[in-house]
Every structure is written in structure tokens, then in C-alpha cells.
Design a protein around this nucleic acid. Sequence first.
DNA 1: ATGGTGGCACAGCCA
Length: 257
Amino acid sequence: MKISTWNVNSLRVRLEHVCDWLQNNQPDVLVLQEIKLTNDLFPHDEIAACGYRAVANGQKTYNGVAILSRIEAADPVFELPDFEDEQRRVLAATVGDYRVIDLYVPNGQTVDSDKYIYKLNWLAALHDFLQAQLSMFPNVVVLGDFNIAPDDRDVHDPESWQGNVLVSDAEREALTGILDLGMVDLFRQFEQADKIFSWWDYRAAAFRRNRGLRIDLILANKSLAENCLSCAVDIEPRTLERPSDHAPVSAIFSSNS
DNA sequence: ATGGTGGCACAGCCA
């Protein structure tokens, strides 16, 4: 079972990259963030031509998430319970034996902004939703753009980022609270090279200089994490013409989980 | 260097 996540920053613009990546990598599930289109404009035919079904939770201009899967996804949830939100950032669904929870966590803009307060409130609601999902499903994978770098190993220059949005203490504590529900950051289960990131700003040649952050994460509950065989970032699509600013991340699970 | 680039949509917001 291979499950992957990718913030595509507009599915319209990146459709060809997504289709090529599906053909080349053959995941069982790929979850997308920032599709930036409404459900009526979702490219179901093109995705079907690659051999995948799709469930979308889309929105015009901003945000929007989707789950692509070889087999049909069931029992979708489109909202954080008891959290009023116009922004389409969550999509949970069951794919075979796995509960897949696709997230586009709010960016937060700056630590003194209203958007940062919204981010922390959103993460508190997410915590309660994940607690409930973990009590209902034996195999839970939570993945997407978390807009939080878990620790300083995930930041190209921790000193320059100190206290900034994406690395602030309150955000990292919120992530720790989610992990404390019984989840594992799969990437850190494995030996990894230094300075592996999943997002690089479009500006200032950040990718060429590898000035990035690891903010695209795959979490799994502990018993499922024990069946994880690998977790890796694929920077190849970030080298293409007109790339997303994020790279895809994939985890592979042994088939008996 | 308080900018830089990119998507959406066509000015300015968001990242």
C-alpha cells in the first residue's frame, strides 16, 4: 500500500504533472491540496484516464482538497465537526482498510495576524476530530500540507525562522498534541539525509539553494506505523517547468496492515 | 536587498 500527498498549488495548472507522476509512481492513494477549483470543474475524466477515482472538496480560487484512489473511497467527511468554516481544507474517507485524512492546514500568514489565531483554533478542532477518528478506525493515515515544520531539522535556517509562522512554539505544540493522541511522523521513523524538505518558496531561487522546510507530513497511528516500510520526499517534480512549490511525499505500508 | 515569484483573475489577496 503506497499512499502519497502533494500540494499542487492549482490542479488546473498542474494536471499534467499530476497525471505524469501517477503514471510514474503508481501510488494506491494520492491526496491533493490547494486544488483551487470547485467540484463541478474537477477533472474526473483525466484522473480516470490515469486509473484513479476521485473525491473532491473544492473551492474557487483558494484551498480545496481531493483524494485520488485506485479503489473507490467511502464514507467521506468534508468538515471538522463543530467548526464553522467556509474554507475547504479537510477530506476524510475510507480506502480499503485505511482511514485516509487529507489536510490543508491554514498557513497562518504571520504570528500577529487573525489568520494565525484561525490556524490555532483550526488545529484545536482538528485534534478533537482526529481523536474521534482514531477511536473509530484501526488504521488511520493523516497526511497533507501541515504548514508546520515539526522541529529545527525540518528548517533550512532555524535561526532566521525563529518565532516565525510555520515554526512557532504554539504551532509545534499543537502538532505535538496531535501526535500525543498516538500518532507518528512516519518520515522520522527512518534514517534520512540532512536537509530534506518538501516546500521551497518560489522567490529568491529558494529551491536551487535548497532553502526549504519540511511541512508536508504523513502521520499514522502507532500500530499502523509499525507496518510502514518507508517514507520519502520526491523532489523530482519540483525540478520541472512551472512546478508546484511543494514536492510529493509517499509512505509505503506492508500489505498485511 | 523589508524585496523576491506564482496562482487567480484582472486589483489585490494569499502563500
